[in-house]
Design a protein around this nucleic acid. Structure first.
Lengths: 134, 134
DNA sequence: CAGTATCCAGACGGATACTG
DNA sequence: CAGTATCCGTCTGGATACTG
């Protein structure tokens, strides 16, 4: 943090983000990708159905979409085995593995989830505050 | 990572996530919240218009929605000053500040964005692979 | 098994206009 | 200034069915 109020600086910054971490978030934390990457990172290689079963609520269509995206971004490696029942395996790439510390930090922060829950309860309990009364 | 293939473990896990970090992601990295939190964390207190100007492409409606959500989750503190032109200030809470290391990790990982871009180029260049030909 | 192909609903967010 | 109110288009992602 630098100063208060921060109105002086005229930095207009490029459209879409004044914020350097948004690009990373878009790649790593879009819907479902977190679960997929984390699963692959934590439990190693998986076949398509195995992922489907582990992520329970995901549909094959969406799983395919996300896996393609992850593969394209170089975070996941897809291996096709031309066998009689076809076999495909997905595993995390080195680049994907480099997200490890990030995942650890995320998991670490989850100790605060209780505080979030608490904050929500308090917020919902107190009547509409000044300057916002309906 | 534990073992290969990982098909044996019958862990069915609760619907929605086999993955413990998803809840955190949902709270912290939903659309726009990253930019808002990061801005508040990095540059301190902001008034509504200041945020609006810094995040350039966000509309007042959406900014309000996200700020409410963040306030409810206890990540941001809203202060209303009952003055003649009303003045409202938003700042990050202690809980929000505890995301600092996470943000740092994210920012650090952005050195890899080039690799992602590279991977995309390669993926797009090579013709449809085996087992996936159109 | 490992996907594709369709169809579709509903949430999300943008544009615009108005108010205490 | 700091929002709120409306309207509405888009696009994601779910359900379902089919294929190499």
């Amino acid at each position: 943090m630098t100063n208060d109020t921060a109105s002086a600086s005229p930095v207009a910054v490029a459209p879409e983000q004044a914020c350097p971490i948004t690009p990373v978030v878009d790649i790593v934390f879009s819907r479902w990708t977190t679960s997929i990457l984390w699963t692959l990172h934590e439990y190693g290689r998986h076949r398509f159905v195995e992922l489907e079963r582990r992520i329970t609520t995901i549909t094959p269509k969406v799983l395919t979409e996300r896996l393609r995206q992850l593969e394209r971004d170089g975070l996941v490696v897809r291996t096709y085995h031309p066998e009689v029942p076809p076999r495909v395996e997905y595993e995390i790439s080195d680049l994907g593995r480099s997200l490890g510390p990030l995942f650890a930090a995320l998991a670490g922060w989850s100790v605060n989830l209780g505080k979030v829950e608490q904050a929500r309860l308090e917020y919902d309990a107190k009547e509409p505050a000044r300057g916002r009364r309906k």
